[in-house]
Design a binder for these strands. Sequence first.
DNA 1: GTCTATACGTCGATAGAC
DNA 2: GTCTATCGACGTATAGAC
Lengths: 191, 191
Amino acid sequence: MNEVEQTIIDAAIKLFSEKGYAATSIRDISKEVNMKSASLYHYIESKKDLLDLIMKRYLTELVEGAKQTLNDLPVDEPETELKNLIKFHVESHGKEKLAALVVDTEYRSLEGESREEIRQLRKNYEKLWQEVLERGKRKGVFDFKDAKITSFALIGLCTGVAHWYRDEGALSLHEIAEQYATLGLKMVRPH
Amino acid sequence: MNEVEQTIIDAAIKLFSEKGYAATSIRDISKEVNMKSASLYHYIESKKDLLDLIMKRYLTELVEGAKQTLNDLPVDEPETELKNLIKFHVESHGKEKLAALVVDTEYRSLEGESREEIRQLRKNYEKLWQEVLERGKRKGVFDFKDAKITSFALIGLCTGVAHWYRDEGALSLHEIAEQYATLGLKMVRPH
DNA sequence: GTCTATACGTCGATAGAC
DNA sequence: GTCTATCGACGTATAGAC
């Protein structure tokens, strides 16, 4: 992956997140990187390929990062695990806000194998959360009815951050992540 | 609004929610309603108009429904208010899932006045939630740091339902709404 | 009200000069 | 590696017959 390729990918992420994949033309992207559209094809195979690459790369980073987060933690502390899972997700969605928006909104633009691949990555990610929730429930530190619904609820909650977070906002990303961790933990704690 | 117009709107909602506004052509919509694309223009002014109408109508329904929900409740019970706000939002997003998806994902496809109008409607809706939250905090039945962030978190949580809910699923929409109300209330209750 | 025909712009992608 | 030129398909929208 050389420098020019990365510039093209960044331009695509910016435009896809602003206008959507379908509404962004290859000519739009080429203008953004000060090239003619024909030149882009020296670096990419197709517009579809560009989306596939972005979705796959960012979602893989999210899944691997979450796995690593859990691995770095002491065993058998589901509350700590959930707290850090939330913080990692929120911070990741704030730092890579534009890519996160693309991943969250362009699943429907994928076709065939790519779509299936992304679907699997998502499922793996949800499973990570569900396992933490189930461990906490067995241990008695969490209380909820359905692990799947609760995982959707928690992930949806954290994903929402990418839709409103701004670097210039009053609260730092770290503070927001802390608040979300508090909110999320309260959601599943017995009372 | 006659029958044919409603059929066209329903077809547009279906296709916009599946493929997105930009990826849906007037010809796609006309095929869905067994017409030629030129005939559609007897009922609509433009493709853009169709989106404006869908976004405005559904979001207005949501805001008005939420206001009505609050009006029907006893005064000075913020917990009851939040519970019913959550249930109304979740049930509305389940019942009109496709329209909800369009509203949630196609804001970026709006331009000019329409965009501003929808932005205002959204703001009004968020304000409803924030007022309930503030009242609860003053009364001491809610505990959270920032009303704006908490309202975003709660609304984002409930909106997520439209992304995974299915009529054929194991849980009824009513049950899901109840679970979400429980989760949401736990999020903001002092412990 | 619904159609056929079509205007005219933009799309993704390619050929081939430099 | 970047360009100009261009292809054929498809986009929204309109004109005008019936």
